[in-house]
Design a protein around this nucleic acid. Structure first.
Lengths: 175, 175
DNA sequence: CTGCATTACATGACACATCAACTTTCGTGG
DNA sequence: CCACGAAAGTTGATGTGTCATGTAATGCAG
């Protein structure tokens, strides 16, 4: 059954990863929707906003970070705005730009959702793994992410001195 | 920065995982579309079909396996059928049912796409990891998948004798 | 300055996903 | 056998994502 592209170990790893991701995404998505009324997309936007100082993000920067098209984000923001979860704000010094800002309602929503969501993450993944497996998973992610970022940003070979600093998150603007 | 829900190791693992799949999905999706004209959704359907004997799948079984709604799959199949990639066929013995069958054109498409796709998987992930990391990733996937399947199928605690047999794939019909 | 490419974001049309019916067939209890 | 609930798929309306394009502001070359 070992294909001609990947050997046995590689194929097992890849298929396991993919299957895990398929099932996990579906499960967490369903639970999130059921328990909080937020979609994964909502959660993505809100959780990124809440982590950054000022609870605001430039539209394009957020789109880049979450790997959405500007257009998708713009549409989604419009809908979230109608639900009162976020609001757009002008950027001082650049009249083209816009901030997405977390509203009070959005803050409540994400605060409530986070505990539910992360408890799911625990139950369905984190708590099932050993310390060592968690470490390794962190390593793997760091390596893969480091590679993908390098490749797409040939100019900025990642923050010098902190190679592969995947934890930087939105707080440390890339590029 | 360590939240109150996950400790440092756990949070690093989770964030690394999440970031990895966000970037990886986006990258592999773009490359697949550019190089083969198939979307990830197309690839999912075709690659599952090609691996099962008879190159056919019952609609609901496939929907279950890939975690789509029947409806989504049905709509998507209609479009793929129009492109000549798959075809529907009657099920002998159950007039309600339908098989999705890979057409010659679909077979060519997936054959061509697989090498391109898996070479991407290699470049962006597999080749970056050590043997041990690959083993561990396989273990992690197996554990998490095993848990998720058990939970959602209380009746069938996975093929007896082969607990957590995540490699079974579509060839071994579940449930 | 001024012209022009670029950046930032929005928008509208179209593709795709979801949700709630709906149709047909199955299978089973009575 | 037959009535009726459950199963397998499909369909249409509506929500969400994509693609091409539009609008306005910016910055920089000359």
């Amino acid at each position: 059954m070992t294909s001609k592209w990947l050997d046995e170990t590689e194929e097992r790893a890849w298929r396991a990863y993919r299957r895990m991701f398929t099932l996990l995404e579906a499960r967490l998505g369903r639970e999130l929707a059921a328990e909080t009324g937020l979609s994964m997309a909502d959660y993505t936007v809100l959780s990124n906003l809440v982590e950054v100082e000022g609870r605001r993000y430039r539209v394009t920067a957020l789109a880049d970070y979450v790997q959405w098209s500007q257009s998708r984000l713009s549409h989604h923001l419009t809908r979230m705005e109608e639900r009162g979860l976020v609001r757009r704000e002008q950027v001082r010094g650049d009249a083209r730009g816009a901030y997405v800002v977390l509203t009070k309602r959005g803050l409540q929503a994400i605060a409530a959702a986070t505990s539910a969501h992360l408890s799911g993450v625990r139950r369905h993944m984190v708590d099932l793994l050993t310390r060592e497996q968690l470490e390794t998973l962190g390593d793997i992610g760091q390596i893969v992410v480091g590679h993908l970022i390098e490749e797409s940003e040939p100019s900025t070979p990642e923050t010098p001195g902190e190679p592969g600093d995947i934890m930087a998150g939105p707080g440390t603007p890339r590029r």
